[in-house]
Amino acid sequence: MSSQMLTISSSPHVNGEQTTQNIMFGVIIALLPALMVAVIFFGIGAIKVTVAAVATCVLFEYLIQKYMMKSTVAITDGSAALSGLLLAFNLPSNFPIWMVVAGSLVTIGIAKMSFGGLGKNPFNPALVGRVFLLVSFPVHMTNWPVPKWLDFSFADSATGATALSVLKEGLANGQSVGEMQKLMELPSHISLFLGQVGGSLGEVSAVALLLGGIYLLYKEIITWHIPVSFLASVVVISGAFWLFDSQQYADPIFHIVSGGIMLGAIFMATDMVTSPMTPKGQIIFGIGCGLLTVIIRMYGGYPEGVSFAILIMNACVPLIDKMVPAKRFGVK
């Protein structure tokens, strides 16, 4: 055998299974249960928004890589498709398609590619897209269709408010949490958990999202640090308020099963690119996200605070990474 035929390269000569591509598609798979719930409850609208967001995110990434950056086209790594899916999960199912496209453009064009593409963006692209839409089209972004079982009619479905905005408005009008619960204005914990509530596509079913989270842990795509510290800090902080005054503040379980916390804690805050590297840093990050979420929910102008909380913590990542670097072996 002649030497020309042998590959010469540095060790190691064997490699692990995980690749960028199968991480991205792994997350997409983990999101499928929640997508199914969305389709069951919101019908055709959910499918339209999802397809539009995913397709346009991938398209924008392709166009930008090919014609603006003139670099290799890497849409097959799955990251653009994932950003699209996450963006869709943050939108109501009756969201106008042209607005979805605008959201995709911001997600990919501004939040991701303008920083240099995959791995270089400081902020979670899908959340930047969502916040852009929330600020630009507040009416459309806060008008949620009421879920119905398997409604595939094209007629506009009835719309309503999310549990969190009912809570916020009720409290502002002087109602107490107990009154709202008695009048059935607030959905029960169990329907929040299963998903029979108004809300954006992906955040309606806590149980479906949890299922996805377990899959991600099993596949070693994420570690427990961010989701657990995020959820735990929400429970602890909202719990403290609730113990202090249970008529002014909702209970901690209501907090973690309503709104975007599950989606945020399991899928958005865990985005590798925009979260700290070390387990310790990740815990600090998770606690920060939880704290900010509760504070914004209670005192902010918006009923929901998850997106802002995560984006603010994204900005802190370089600092956290600097503050808590990996512990070196043998160094006290």
Partner: peptide, 23 residues
Amino acid sequence: DTKRADETACIRCGKCSTVCCLG
């Protein structure tokens, strides 16, 4: 047995550091 897949951008997953026995 020994193929290395194509390189993508670093996705800042931190796994290289997590598995490093010297931190």
